[in-house]
Design a protein around this nucleic acid. Sequence first.
DNA 1: GTCGCAATGGAACGTTCGTTCCATCATGGC
DNA 2: GCCATGATGGAACGAACGTTCCATTGCGAC
Lengths: 279, 279
Amino acid sequence: MNERIDVAPSAPRDFDSLRAIVGRELPSLPKRLSQVGKYALEHPDEIAFGTAASIAAAAHVQPSTLVRFAHQFGYEGFSDLQLVFRERLRDRPSPYAERLRTIRERRHGARPEIEILDGFLGAASRSIDKLAEGINPTRFRRSVEILARADTIYLIARRRSFPLTSYMAYGFSKLGVRTHLVNSPTAIDPEIAAMASARDAAIAISFTTYSAETVSLAKTIAQAGVPLVAITDSSFSPLTEVATEWLEVAEADHAGFRSLSASMALCMALTVAVASARE
Amino acid sequence: MNERIDVAPSAPRDFDSLRAIVGRELPSLPKRLSQVGKYALEHPDEIAFGTAASIAAAAHVQPSTLVRFAHQFGYEGFSDLQLVFRERLRDRPSPYAERLRTIRERRHGARPEIEILDGFLGAASRSIDKLAEGINPTRFRRSVEILARADTIYLIARRRSFPLTSYMAYGFSKLGVRTHLVNSPTAIDPEIAAMASARDAAIAISFTTYSAETVSLAKTIAQAGVPLVAITDSSFSPLTEVATEWLEVAEADHAGFRSLSASMALCMALTVAVASARE
DNA sequence: GTCGCAATGGAACGTTCGTTCCATCATGGC
DNA sequence: GCCATGATGGAACGAACGTTCCATTGCGAC
């Protein structure tokens, strides 16, 4: 029997555990083994599909080093380690296009209507992807800090962005945070905005094409010294000029129409983060 | 040179094309080859990871049949065909948990705030997954038909669901569809609802815990013979009893809070589908 | 400087792989 | 009923695989 197996009898059987362990031990590993570990973490797909020879060449080591690496972490051999990298790809949920095709094929009453739903679900998925990749954590943290200090949070949005502030108003009210939804049916919004002070804060949301009213209210409120967090879809937005801090979220479109799926997730996250920062 | 290569010089290099061709030719294929084709379409992951011997055993054929199958579609051999199945897994976007971890590791200023955003993005992603899998296309089609016939569409929602109807009202107005957002600040909603006739239609949206007002308005309007499409989160919802047709969308939650990402995509799809069905 | 040990490279091993080839079987035309 | 043709099963092949083993190198302790 091999002594290694006594020392490390149970190698991680799922990719997450393996990555954690490899990442932790990487600095203390011998040169070639850490070279393999680094390559494995950076190119997991290659490990899954390649052969020992091809991977060894790509990582500039000998095939035997791969086996040693596997032994190091308790596996029976390289092939055993490779199984973990393959399982990782197996568990992965299939992309929307594929999943939706399956649904469409399963049910024979497929119609153009469902194509539209497909399109919006795909767009929502892509938007959330993009947000996850593109969000600036520092900006998000600062936005939370600004809003957490506020006495009252003024919510400014029109037209397409209004559902976002109305949901935030609902969420904040549930969480005991005082807000003011600046969307009066009596056209006294500038007067309401004028009530905000430096001890308050405001959230302004607007996407291309930017609502003139939102921009104007945001400017007024910012000039009065009220900290302003803007949520918009590009750094060229007129809101970024006047905002204390701003967050970018770009929704993918389907057939020219944009949903609000990613923005909704961002707004809800902001709402909950602010409320939890206040406690 | 092999004649097959002259006959079918270019085998499909991406999985989608391959699936389309195999699906089309499946019925005209010899018994064992169609057996392989069927297995390949149903277990693409096995083809990607397995060996010719293991796949052959699983599909109850000889390994040589796999090679014949590959030749049939213009591939140089089974290994060549297998590459297409592997590429399919390679292109697949990584799941959110993994992607977000990468982001978190990349930026060292990771804070609890970003964890909350992670959570909501993950929940949004899961919700959209679930909606894509769980949606009933027939119900969706019928809902579109009902609303497409309507003169005016009455939109009923309170509290958490209100952002959805407010967005639909915006979308419908852009698309030239007459709507009435039943959300009056003057508490005359029952009177407004009473104006709806059988030539109109209504959309009622409510999730657990169901808003009493929404349920009551939905009942009134349904009893007046107005076709009613409900959007809710379970078949036990009080709305399903009175609705002409209903759609289910269950949002995943993060820390007890639900975002509206999937519902937003569904509502926008419904809006655009109705408008396009009217033309 | 040299001893000892871990790390490494690379040849050699047996195994398993994908593929080919040929004998056998099934099937439809005449 | 027989023949021709395509489909199928299965043995055999060489190539490529993962693994082992051993000689060599690198490096720190004394």
